[in-house]
């Protein structure tokens, strides 16, 4: 096995994020099983469904590049959904909700960043605990029942199309391009890359390691808030369960996309295709009649498989 991995062609192939291969395999499976489903309209609907996940992935990949993780997205989505649907702010306009959501995400992200960057608490524990607190709070405030309705404008915007492509999908591509620019063309992007490579070396080279980690988490909180707005638009009602499985899916998509704790081979588009893989995976599983438990197993196997793929490679390089 070691000899195979030392082969130059094999090593070249191992550099490509697994998400591209998985995407092609799933596409081929779908093409064989249901060729008539592969048209722009149907695919547009499926891809539109995972836009909240795709946006959350953008935040996840930034924090994973600095060797951290953010599992608080579920709590943030639930809280913002509650703000919008509960009628706590009667007669509020859409811009107000957008600002409120972004501020919420910013504050939670900043808190995560402070705890992880300054207090040096384990990122998994902090973000999971934050998520649990937020979920408990929302369920208490709504007594466990779905809160209420979402202003109609959210869903109307979500349902628009531009040149027969759903607007949420375009919005996702645009945001991905922005994050790509941020990571590849700005000083912050360089800082993120160097902290991920080696935090100690970065520190001694004058990179503000702590500030970079805090900023990365703040950005992740902000992006989670955007994901929450899109998710709220998509379901158009209040819910006490929405988005709870998204953070873990986001981790899976990011790892699948070639970004693993400090290693950024997949860039931004690897995880983008990682999220697309999940869109296809859900379609394929629905077509094959595999339900929820099967999806849980698939998520676990994908995360473990992709992580082993990288673990083996690190040891051989």
């Amino acid at each position: 096995m070691a000899a195979v991995l030392a082969n130059p062609i094999a090593r070249r192939l191992l550099r490509i994020p697994p998400s591209y291969f998985v995407f092609l395999v799933l596409l081929a499976t779908l093409w064989i099983a249901r060729p008539n489903m592969l048209n722009l309209n149907i695919m547009g609907i499926f891809v539109r469904q995972i836009v909240p996940l795709g946006i959350l992935v953008l935040g996840q990949l930034v924090v994973m590049r600095v060797k951290s993780i953010d599992l608080s997205g579920g709590g943030i989505i639930l809280l913002i959904n509650y703000f919008i649907s509960s009628g706590t702010f009667p007669g509020a306009s859409m811009p107000f909700f957008v600002v409120l959501a972004l501020a919420t995400g910013l504050v939670i992200g900043l808190f995560n960043g402070f705890m992880i960057g300054s207090r040096r608490v384990s990122a998994v524990i902090v973000t999971l605990a934050v998520s649990i607190i937020l979920v408990g709070l929302v369920q208490f405030l709504s007594s466990g029942n779905p809160p209420g309705d979402v202003p109609k404008l959210f869903n109307d915007l979500y349902n628009t199309k531009f040149l027969s492509v759903p607007t949420p999908v375009l919005f996702w591509v645009l945001l991905t391009a922005l994050v790509w620019l941020l990571l590849s063309r700005t000083v912050f992007g360089r800082y993120v890359a160097s902290v991920g490579e080696n935090a100690e070396a970065a520190h001694f080279s004058g990179v503000p390691v702590q500030r970079t980690v805090i900023l990365a988490h703040t950005l992740a909180g902000l992006i989670a808030a955007i994901a929450a707005l899109v998710q709220t638009g998509s379901i158009a009602v209040g819910s006490v369960r929405v988005g709870l499985d998204l953070p873990i899916l986001a981790v899976a998509a990011t790892i699948l996309g070639g970004v693993v704790f400090g290693r950024g081979d997949g860039g931004v588009w690897g995880p983008f295709f990682g999220a697309l893989c999940f869109a296809l995976l859900f379609v394929v599983m629905t077509v094959l009649g595999i339900d929820e438990p099967g999806k849980l197993i698939a998520q676990g196997v994908i995360i473990l498989g992709a992580a082993i793929f990288y673990g083996v490679r690190v040891r051989n390089s």
Binding site: I69, V124, I248, V251, I255, F261, P293, G294, K295, L296, I297, A298, Q299, G300, V301, I303, L304, A307, I308, Y310, G311, V312, V314, R315
Partner: peptide, 19 residues
């Protein structure tokens, strides 16, 4: 296989829950 403990056990958490 050099997988981070949190990632490894998070994956098995999902696999076992599914089963």
């Amino acid at each position: 296989f050099n997988v981070h403990p949190i990632i490894a056990t998070l994956s098995t958490q999902y696999i076992v829950l599914g089963i």
